[in-house]
């Protein structure tokens, strides 16, 4: 009975090979996520956690007034509104979308340049240069931006010395602008790389074919290059958009009073206010919002691509 044993051993080998990453994923991804979901339905009762399942946390996130059990669903839905959490979530989404747009729009020309105008032997060098910022920690890069954008920072000092301004600019640090600038820089390589890969995959004879068929270079870009680079752009958008929502280091350090985002609130709930259940509910709300926006984006993109074909 050799064959069954062989099959068995292959199966066992597959199980052996798969189990470490599987365990890793279960332990470090699925379990914490499950814990967060669980927590969001519990409540903090001063020092202990009340484990009766309730929607109180979500009510607090969404509703301005207490949920009235006796009233109808519609009356209660009307209380949804302008909570501090929703304001922060809205600001977070705005910052993330803005950062994503800025990053991808700035990353595209860089990726295009490397793919189309850098000689093949130099491309890896360019990609290497683009990843150089990763050699220092994220935190240090954020601090560097503080030095650059600060009241007596590089930007202000230079502009004053040139004589363009008399007083330091204040709108570039400790507000949302600073957060956007810092995040856009931090995520630039993540946007450049997928777009670069998509551009590299484009058969150059397609561009020649388009010109041969009477189109200018600009028209060729919009009719051939851009549609074919779209998968890379979509990847870049998702890669930038999803993690920026969760980033709390940059808003904490660069955002000042008005630049705090939902991630900071989640952190505060978990650590400073010792309200893990509310923090969990906020985290889940943010996660679901990001998922919905990402899905809508993918759906729109598919629809746009299909409309072209």
């Amino acid at each position: 009975m050799k064959r069954p044993r062989l099959a068995m051993s292959e199966r066992r080998r597959a199980a052996l090979l798969l189990s470490p990453p599987f365990l890793y994923a279960v332990l470090l991804l699925a379990l914490p996520l499950f814990a967060i979901v669980l927590f969001s339905f519990w409540t903090q009762d001063f020092m202990t956690i009340d484990r009766t399942a309730t929607l109180d946390n979500y009510r607090e996130v969404f509703a301005t007034e207490k949920w009235v059990p006796g009233a109808g669903l519609w009356e209660n839905l009307q209380t949804i509104g302008n909570t501090i959490y929703l304001t922060l979530l809205g600001r977070s989404l705005y910052v993330s979308l803005f950062v994503t747009a800025v990053t991808v729009i700035l990353a595209f020309p860089v990726a295009y340049f490397i793919s189309f105008h850098v000689s093949p032997s130099r491309k890896s060098l360019w990609l290497f240069l683009i990843t150089i910022p990763f050699w220092t920690s994220y935190l240090i890069r954020v601090f560097l931006w503080k030095v650059i954008l600060g009241y007596n920072g590089v930007v202000n000092a230079s502009l004053i010395n040139i004589g363009l301004i008399d007083e330091p600019l204040t709108f570039i640090l400790y507000n949302i602008n600073a957060v956007i600038i810092t995040l856009a820089h931090a995520f630039a390589p993540f946007a450049i790389l997928p777009i670069f890969v998509a551009l590299e995959k484009i058969d150059r004879s397609l561009l020649e074919a388009s010109q041969d068929l009477g189109e200018t270079r600009l028209r060729t870009f919009f009719r051939v290059t851009l549609p074919l680079a779209m998968p890379g752009v979509v990847a870049a958008v998702l890669i930038v958009f999803i993690p920026t929502i969760g980033d709390y280091v940059t808003p904490a350090l660069m955002g000042g009073a008005g630049g705090q985002l939902i991630a900071n609130m989640i952190q505060t709930q978990f650590l400073a206010l010792n309200n893990a259940p509310l923090g969990a509910a906020l985290a889940l709300t943010a996660m679901v919002s990001v998922t919905i926006i990402a899905l809508v984006f993918i759906w729109l993109n598919r629809k746009w691509l299909r409309a072209r074909t």
Binding site: D203, S205, L206, E208, A209, S210, Q211, D212, L213, G214, E215, T216, V224, P227, L228, L305, R308, T309
Partner: peptide, 19 residues
């Protein structure tokens, strides 16, 4: 190329894959 009275059939055919 886009203003010449010539058209080309490329070795790889260069068919636009998205169309």
């Amino acid at each position: 190329a886009n203003q010449r009275p010539t058209n080309m059939v490329f070795q790889s055919y260069a068919i636009f894959p998205h169309l």
